[in-house]
Design a protein around this nucleic acid. Structure first.
Lengths: 244, 244
DNA sequence: TAGATTGTTAATCGATTAACAATC
DNA sequence: TAGATTGTTAATCGATTAACAATC
């Protein structure tokens, strides 16, 4: 399919090439792989820390040391944001931070409700987690008369029967589920028709993403405890082998 | 390095082959990749559910439907446990469940302390999470006089100054860190010298695994919220594009 | 035996690492 | 200019999927 480099028309190709190359560099719509996205919050935290310490400049190898991600992978990941670095210099921390923040949707505003005002719900309401991530908790709900009417931060605990209307009227984005024991059916019924944009699920029961058309993050804390005990039992076994 | 197949001594090799092959099948020491380990708790939960419903038999395609993991990958994963299935029949749920449980170290006993008796610490103490995973909470600690002496489940909240001695004397395996705000240095100082086997860290500050010689699981809840808001902002953008 | 389903090998896909030319 | 460090391409590695022979 190669053409000979003789005819004057070919010069048009030469002119067009830089334009195409530019598009490739800025890559505004290129889908970022999930593996990369999952590393971004770590970069985000690290860069914020650096900003707090007034560090203005960082190289990929320094950031590698701080994050535990290889320098090569770091540069590969940052490529998706399009030329945030400068050859021979490194990355401007501020620029990198805002580039990642923007791409992650931090800084945009989200509204949320907490469902379940037990200890976990209380812990989350009191944490600064939401404000730090641009999420505004606009309501807290519970089934129990014991807590309905209590004050949690800026919110008064409401009856969960009002949840659906509240979410629709206030255009709530995220439901934070802190219900200690529930089966999946109950959870789905609870959030169905609320017009939510996403679910952050702390309940011990996992919500199957295939059954719902909005993003769900299941925390699955029990799974992570299991992972820990697995690691511990592996080391126990190794120690026993070494002894015998 | 090949030898000719003539001398009678070579028959020894032939005799030995089945023994070596057997070892390969049972694979007791083969390292299971991390990607596989991370799927096991999901299988574990699913199989327990099936046992509760008295389902005795399951095929890889049925389990695939339930877990969202492809049948091919499931069979590939289960291979590490060595022949738990039967061709033409499927898997015996009970056998599979106990095979995975054993490998994950569930059923073994672990001891733990909860550090931080705030809302999060309370939520964890009250949950049945630990007993379900073979972990026995033997102590709860806090800095604040307001909660020291309170009763949490089977435990009385102790002063965190007693933590080190308690852990060493009672041979505690796991510290569950529920301290709302702390820097890494504080956390490391807290657990240093406790003789722990692992750390389950709920604090907003991540512990760098490279600085500590025992397994650490950092929950990083804030990161998962960030991941959710990213997903939401992606869909928002898509919706906006479709409108215009 | 015929049908079903595993265990396993080979093919594909994607993610990570290595290397180096481009360039500040 | 010389040194440093990115952006990018190629090589490697590992994980997932497809396919099918073994066998219940």
């Amino acid at each position: 399919m190669r053409r000979k480099k003789t005819a004057p028309e070919d010069e048009l190709d030469i002119i067009e090439i830089p334009a195409i190359a530019d598009m490739t560099v800025s890559r505004p719509d290129e889908e970022i792989p999930d593996s990369v996205i999952k590393r971004l919050p770590r970069y985000f935290r690290c860069l914020r820390e650096l900003l707090n310490r007034d560090v203005m400049k960082i190289s990929s190898s320094e950031l590698s040391e701080l994050t535990g991600v290889s320098a090569s992978q770091l540069r590969q990941d940052l490529k998706y944001f399009g030329g945030l670095g400068q050859r021979g210099y490194g990355y401007n921390v501020k620029r990198l931070y805002s580039g990642i923040s923007e791409r992650l949707g931090v800084g945009k505003k989200y509204s949320a409700v907490i469902v379940g005002a037990g200890n976990l719900g209380k812990a989350l309401s009191n944490s600064r987690l939401f404000e730090q991530r641009g999420v505004w908790v606009k309501g807290v709900f519970d089934v129990s008369d014991k807590v309905i009417g209590d004050t949690l931060g800026e919110n008064t605990v409401k009856n969960v029967s009002e949840l659906k209307d509240f979410c629709r009227n206030s255009n709530i984005d995220i439901a934070v589920l802190c219900i200690p024991c529930a089966d999946q059916g109950e959870l789905l019924k609870l959030i169905d028709g609320c017009g939510l944009k996403g679910v952050w699920n702390f309940s011990p029961c996992e919500i199957d993403e295939r059954l719902i058309d909005i993003p769900v993050v299941n925390l699955c804390t029990a799974d992570s405890l299991m992972y820990l005990t697995y690691e511990i039992s592996c080391r126990r076994e190794k120690d026993n082998e070494n002894k015998s």
